[in-house]
Amino acid sequence: MSTLSLSPRSGLTWTVLRLHRGSLWLWTAYVVLLAGVLLWAWGPGVSDLGIVGGCDPGVANVCTAKGSTADSFHYAVSFADTFLSLLPLAVAVFAGGALLGSELEKGTAQLAWTQSVSPARWLTTKLALPALALVTGTALLVVLRRQVAAAAPGLSQSQWYAGSFEVLGPTAVALPLLGLACGALMALVHRRSLRGAGFGLALTAALTAAAGLLRPHLWPTEIRVGTVAQNYLRFTGEITSEGAVTASGAHIADPMCVGKSACIAEHHVTGYYREGHPPSHFWPLQLVEAGLLLALTAVIVFIAYRILRRSVAA
């Protein structure tokens, strides 16, 4: 059978699976461990949380859990969130090092290209198999994480604007794919496992941070304006900015004039505003950001293929 075959029991696919079987087992263990932690949090973890306070799904930190499972629940969710957040970086290191960088450095990739395996097919298989595993495993974990959030909606760990945005939607699936693409690109650029892993990690971290900074601007915000007497109106969701409103309608930094008529008159303050994203903006923000991340991933993969083609032709 031709080495170009993508049959799971022969050819290039089987070779890649066999070569990276240790990484596959590690990924399986990762998914099973986090799934077990989230299943516990979803079931026994919420059974005796002992919620105290007036829980409001739209407001962070208005209620707390004081029951026998409260501490364990918080540790379990924090553990899962941390490992999900670090996944894109770990994938970038793997892709830049063991997946591609090591073979390019040792020359085994070039050897495969001389044995009827085209460079493009080699790279496609190298990226497609990890991508499939990442999408399948991460999607499962996101579904479980959302079930945990739905079971305890009043707690801050269940509210996306309280710091859990990246683990509650399709963005969590798109980010590891970005890490895979960044690691692959850096491996092809540097052709060294350590450099590929290191630069892949750095590029992924930079792009992930940039996505977080860009996020508030991906969807139109809403503004709540209150009079001087009302002060700041309650805003449910993620607040992106707040301050005072002048007679001309301009938004300025709060001059801290509460109860000071002279100060209010001096700064021409007529009210106060809060601007941000209400809870209903979760899915628009998630879908737009995930779409942008996938588009960026596609661009990086395209560049990787171009670099591969040029290196082979050189």
Rank of each mutant, 00 (worst) to 15 (best):
C263S: 07
R145M: 08
A131W: 02
I223D: 12
L144P: 05
G45R: 09
S68H: 11
P255A: 04
T28E: 04
A70C: 10
A181G: 06
A98T: 04
V16L: 15
Y30N: 02
A295L: 15
R215W: 01
G67A: 06
C257S: 08
H20M: 06
G54H: 15
D56N: 15
C257V: 05
L4R: 15
A262N: 13
L213T: 02
T13F: 13
G11M: 09
A150T: 03
G169R: 07
L39C: 11
G36H: 12
R224G: 03
H281K: 13
T15G: 04
P216Y: 02
S23P: 00
V37G: 07
S261K: 15
I300S: 02
L132W: 02
T138G: 11
D56E: 13
G53E: 12
E275F: 04
G101Y: 00
T221N: 08
G154F: 07
S164L: 04
L111N: 09
S261F: 08
R274F: 01
C257N: 07
G196V: 00
L207M: 11
L296G: 14
G212W: 02
P220L: 08
T138F: 11
V143H: 13
L24G: 10
G200I: 01
L38Y: 06
R306P: 02
P176Q: 07
P255D: 03
P57R: 09
S116C: 10
G196T: 02
G50A: 08
V167N: 07
T28N: 11
S102Q: 14
F282V: 08
A133I: 03
G276S: 09
W25A: 15
I264F: 07
S68T: 12
E289H: 08
I239A: 11
H277Q: 11
I252W: 12
T138K: 12
V167L: 10
Q110T: 10
V148Q: 04
A174Y: 05
A174H: 08
A41G: 07
G226T: 05
F235K: 04
W113N: 09
S7R: 14
T69Y: 10
A128H: 05
L39T: 11
L188D: 00
A150W: 05
F165R: 04
A265E: 14
Q147P: 00
A95L: 03
E238D: 13
M186D: 00
I303D: 01
G183L: 02
P278L: 04
R18D: 05
T125H: 08
E275H: 05
P88L: 01
Y273K: 07
Q157G: 08
G36P: 07
W42R: 14
A262G: 15
G169D: 05
S7C: 08
G291C: 06
L38E: 13
L140Q: 03
A120L: 10
A211E: 03
L26H: 01
G43K: 10
L34A: 04
F302V: 13
A202L: 15
R215L: 15
G50V: 05
T171Q: 12
C263K: 08
L294I: 11
